[in-house]
Write a protein that binds this DNA or RNA. Structure first.
Lengths: 161, 161
DNA sequence: TATTGTTATACTCTATAACTATA
DNA sequence: TATAGTTATAGAGTATAACAATA
């Protein structure tokens, strides 16, 4: 992710730019922090972690095209991430009898254990970051982001927001 | 930027993970949109645009180390971006008499004009994205992100949030 | 010694497009 | 024809580290 701008305009939409600046700035800082910690403490990356998180929430496994849709990256990249995680023994491919084109990806036992450790830390990091903000403000933030999210969903393509 | 997770935990900090998921998801979608538009309509990239935005807000110019700090990337990358923008005639380096190590970067006239066009579009895109959300909610979102921002500032290093 | 900026390099992440195999 | 996944490739974006010039 990249950063903020401080430019001032003449169109009267300054507040939109400022909102975006603040959003992306907060996200960049947090994401950099998470990325660094995942690398230093677990030797992994954000996309690898996120694929595992998707799979942890789907014990029956996910098709690669579904992972592609959810993670908003193209098929080729899912192949690459899957290859690496499979080599590490964290996920496994299996074939569907009903459609031999399709691969279903699941966490292995090892993958599930590894993800469990990582996600505990990840959750704690986020708690450390957010818990200094009053619960009421966090809740309001969550709700208002939900409004943005549903607008984006309606507005831009058919990607999940 | 990367994407969301939907994992559920046992530590009771689920809401922190959900907040982060929603934040980063919204940011990813918007950022991808801005990146695509900057490339398609202006043949530029987000970091290039953002450096120009920083310089547009500082008519007296900025030191490269200051750009590095503001954009949260290392010096070497600022050198690279500056080289490219300079080659396009959009920025110029100048030397300080008081410290001959330092380079001060400014937008050229062309750079200022180019940025003016781009930032008008950029502002309009953001307005299109955000304006469907009620003003009151956007304002609340902005304020609550401000709380996060100042906490991050206090918490993580000395980087500007 | 510390700081500013440069250079060289390598890696992660991503998109595009051509491909294979199935449907 | 359309879809699922693979492969190859190119480029963006970034960090690390060694370096030169200056403070």
């Amino acid at each position: 992710m990249t950063n903020a701008t401080t430019f001032h305009s003449e169109q009267g939409h300054d507040s939109d730019v400022q909102l975006w600046t603040r959003m992306t700035s907060c996200c960049t800082v947090i994401e950099n922090e998470l990325r660094t910690r995942l690398r230093n403490e677990f030797g992994t990356t954000l996309p690898h972690f996120e694929m595992m998180a998707q799979l942890a929430g789907a014990p029956e496994g996910l098709k690669m095209s579904e992972l592609s849709r959810r993670m908003r990256v193209t098929n080729g990249n899912i192949t690459g991430i899957t290859d690496q995680l499979e080599k590490e023994g964290l996920v496994e491919r299996s074939k569907l009898a009903t459609d031999r084109r399709t691969s279903v990806i699941k966490l292995t036992i090892n993958g599930r254990q590894a993800f469990s450790r990582m996600s505990k830390a990840h959750e704690q990091w986020l708690h450390d970051i957010f818990s200094r903000s009053p619960q009421q403000k966090r809740s309001s933030l969550y709700k208002n982001l939900g409004v943005i999210k549903s607008m984006l969903k309606a507005q831009l393509h058919n990607k999940p927001a």
